[in-house]
Design a protein around this nucleic acid. Structure first.
Lengths: 253, 253
DNA sequence: TTTGCGCTTTCCGTTACGTCAACTCCTACG
DNA sequence: CGTAGGAGTTGACGTAACGGAAAGCGCAAA
């Protein structure tokens, strides 16, 4: 029982060109070649092709697949190494995406060349931003908590999500308005905003004074948060942090 | 003031070969070419090169960079589109890494061909696995909570992290031992294990009965958790879920 | 004069094939 | 028996962004 190259192509889903390529690089030579030069494959070749396609789908290079198949290298070892490469590359793209995101924000800041404190309206502010917020190293450390947030988030609709994002943005804009007219962070109106913020956080976590201050500092230190605040208005992250610290001192300790 | 190709290479950090390439594809022609064929660059070219390198670092293709620079296309628009591509590719790699991870687990299950319930010892069980636990879509939804876990995680050393992973694994192995000898999930010894698990979770979150059951179900439904449990012993995820449900009924409601 | 540096052009190699182009072989049809 | 068509073949070029090697030219010091 032998099959032609077109048969194999149909059965496996790859093109005949690909099979010829695999022959050319020595990855999958046909069982035998007819007098007219036609390639013929048998079951052994089909099995080998199956292995090849499996590893190919996992993203391994053809060279590496050949090594594993021919030199009897440990497949698990190869996959593990490959897995590591995938993670590295994923993290690289993750970082890159955040850098791009930040660059976009900076370009937009440049564009409107006013030197007074400027408050950006939230129309398109979070487009292409929401998915780039997190770092991959830390997100692997607390699966349980992450699971919980995932489970909670899964109960939300897209509209819910969008609405909450708008709420957050609106809160940031109100703070920016206070800051623009130099209202001190201890002003009751500002503290009322912080209180709303605190209540929002309490939906899934109740920080004490130190923790709440730490969270405020995060808004300044963390590139992603800072970028979000800076897009609303320059210096807003620090203003928010100071307001939160004042709140923590007055109401949480 | 003009500079030779080597001057520009030194100043910019790229190779002269690269500059020649950029000339060849029309991305950065030199200001003028001397009688001996030598390329000479002036300040305008340096500025253009600066732009090119900026966008190149962000991962844009040379073609696209040329389009932006020559046709005055909107840089922000180009970056936004690029950003989207980056996220898509990142997610693809993320998914791929998880698939590879699962495949490794399955290959290892195949390798030891015993048909009785087998408990895998945790020596190398989590190598190359810990960074592939999470899905990117959901992780973008709850920045605050994620921030908190990040802040907590950042206070941990690598040893802390490893120790906690070992603890988790040890807990899973103990559950597997109960399961292997068919101890019912309502057995006090099993429930004691679940209680330890519950206490661990309470370090950052206090689930009620329904939430705790839901978490148990997650261990079964979620590919990543399930894979981790299945690597210890087949069916362990379900056993754990049932034990948690029993615990929730008995102690949390 | 020779050596050597700096520069040039040209070409091959990298991945995993897609896409022609030109050619051969075999079968069916008129 | 000629020919159209289908299935197969090899060969070559293209992809992105250069790296590296080979071979040659102009100029200056030793």
């Amino acid at each position: 029982m032998a099959w032609s190259i077109a048969d194999v192509a149909r059965m496996s889903g790859v093109t005949s060109r690909t099979l010829r390529h695999y022959d050319e690089i020595g990855l999958l030579p046909p069982a035998w070649i007819g007098g007219n030069g036609h390639r013929h494959y048998e079951e052994a070749e089909l099995l080998r092709l199956q292995q090849i396609l499996l590893m190919r789908e996992l993203g391994l290079g053809l060279r590496e697949i050949g090594d594993v198949l021919d030199n009897q290298l440990d497949q698990v070892e190869a996959l593990r190494a490959h897995h590591q490469r995938l993670l590295t590359e994923r993290d690289r793209l993750d970082t890159l995406a955040r850098t791009v995101s930040r660059t976009i924000a900076e370009l937009q800041k440049e564009q409107d060349g006013s030197d007074m404190t400027k408050i950006n309206r939230p129309e398109k502010l979070f487009e292409g931003f929401d998915a780039s917020r997190h770092e991959s190293k830390a997100r692997d450390k607390w699966p349980q908590e992450w699971e919980q947030s995932k489970r909670y988030a899964d109960t939300l609709t897209a509209e819910d999500h969008e609405r909450m994002q708008r709420e957050t943005t609106a809160q940031m804009v109100r703070m920016a308005e206070f800051m623009a007219v130099d209202i001190p962070v201890t002003d009751p109106a500002v503290q009322a905003e912080v209180d709303a913020h605190y209540q929002g956080i309490c939906r899934f976590w109740t920080p004490n004074a130190a923790a709440f201050k730490g969270l405020g500092q995060t808004y300044v230190d963390d590139q992603q948060w800072r970028s979000a605040y800076d897009r609303i208005a320059e210096g807003l992250a620090e203003y928010q942090r100071d307001a939160m610290a004042a709140y923590a001192d007055a109401r949480l300790s």
